[in-house]
Design a protein around this nucleic acid. Structure first.
Lengths: 218, 218
DNA sequence: ACCCACACGTGAGGC
DNA sequence: TGCCTCACGTGTGGG
């Protein structure tokens, strides 16, 4: 835009030489830079190259200025210092965000990790050769802790609930999760008042119920 | 480091003038820049100012180079283009991180927001006249989050499971707890494939189911 | 020898 | 007016 044309450049060079040396007796050089009939005029070889270099650098500075939103001045120096402050701000923001994200992931990844663990457990179970797992532990005289893993099929859970209810087993606290291809049920169950609770019997009963459900839904 | 001292600078300037004009008759200028006894030597007024400006700009460029870790070359132009690419990379990283964070927050905040939305639904439930509480929030296009509080009565939970199963509702994750006189069920449910999921319909359906169960077990 | 990048001093122009 | 920034052409040193 404010670039002078070639002639004016040459003229400026001449003026520069004149002002530098204050020589008035020298004849004026030709307007065309490529003329070399006048051997007094020295033309540097890397004139255009230097011109391209300056142009490229200016373009890059303009690009640098264009991508950061915080600009205080159009100056060549302030472009750089603005870029520096912007880079620092971005670095701090990245650090803050990654830290925040990491912190937030730490809380929500526990479930994912647990799920992954369960998936692995299910995979291990398939290696183990049995599709259903029943574990029973006694909590107190009429409470049991139960863990059940069965194949995931529609309606099995409600049937299991119904069967347990029919056998007088009451679920106190239950946690029920589906992972790919399996139900995982952990529950604290309680037998009816008056009935005696024996861990092996309960486990057999649970296995019978599960077998019944599995055979019916096959 | 490769900065020449003042004397050499002056000498370079003299050499530059000599080479430019090829004047051999002129006497050599003094080494000190501030001498002006030789009036032939033209000294621009903004020489030191320009020198400070260049020095400052060079320093800022070095600072700009020092804060970005990715440097391909020591060149003045590559410093700028490296800064540009680094800023772009930082911008993308900030955008990615914030988006990820926002997305992660949305999963945990959606339930809260939905809960707030459903609170007035719960208020409507009191008009319905039954002690049961049903809250429904949408997780994604075919998943709902459900919270149910009903009176604790034997077999209600299994009946509820059965009813839900009959209506094509599948329980993915369920947490079931009995406290004094009540069942508390929170569950992530999923409708059958092909069925469309509408939150108010699902809530009405749940309310009907619970109402039916409650009336039958009265 | 060439090429490239940089520093230099200076004029032009804007405020 | 002065101050400040920029573009210019050139010399120079390193590869």
């Amino acid at each position: 835009m404010e670039y002078q044309d070639e002639d004016h450049l040459c003229f400026t060079m001449e003026e520069f030489a004149l002002a530098t040396e204050n020589v008035s007796s020298r004849q004026r050089m030709s307007r065309k830079r490529n003329y070399d009939d006048d051997t007094r005029v020295y033309k540097s070889k890397n004139l255009e190259i230097e011109r391209r270099r300056r142009e490229k650098l200016s373009t890059r500075l303009l690009m640098l200025r264009s991508i950061n939103p915080i600009i205080t001045n159009m100056n060549r120096g302030t472009i750089i210092v603005d870029a520096i402050t912007y880079i620092e701000k971005l670095q701090h923001e990245v650090q803050r965000l990654s830290q925040e994200l990491h912190q937030l992931e730490a809380t929500s990844e526990k479930t994912a990790e647990a799920k992954v663990d369960e998936i692995d457990a299910v995979e291990d179970m398939k290696h183990w050769g049995i599709q259903a797992e029943v574990r029973v532990a006694q909590i107190d005289e009429n409470k049991l802790w139960v863990k059940i893993i069965i194949e995931k099929k529609r309606g099995r859970f409600s049937k299991l609930m119904e069967a347990l209810n029919n056998f007088g087993i009451e679920l106190i606290d239950t946690n029920f999760t589906t992972t790919k291809g399996a139900f995982l049920i952990t529950s604290c169950i309680q037998v009816k008042d008056g009935e005696r609770l024996e861990i092996h019997q309960s486990k057999s009963l649970l296995q019978e119920i599960i077998n019944d459900i599995s055979s019916k839904s096959e």
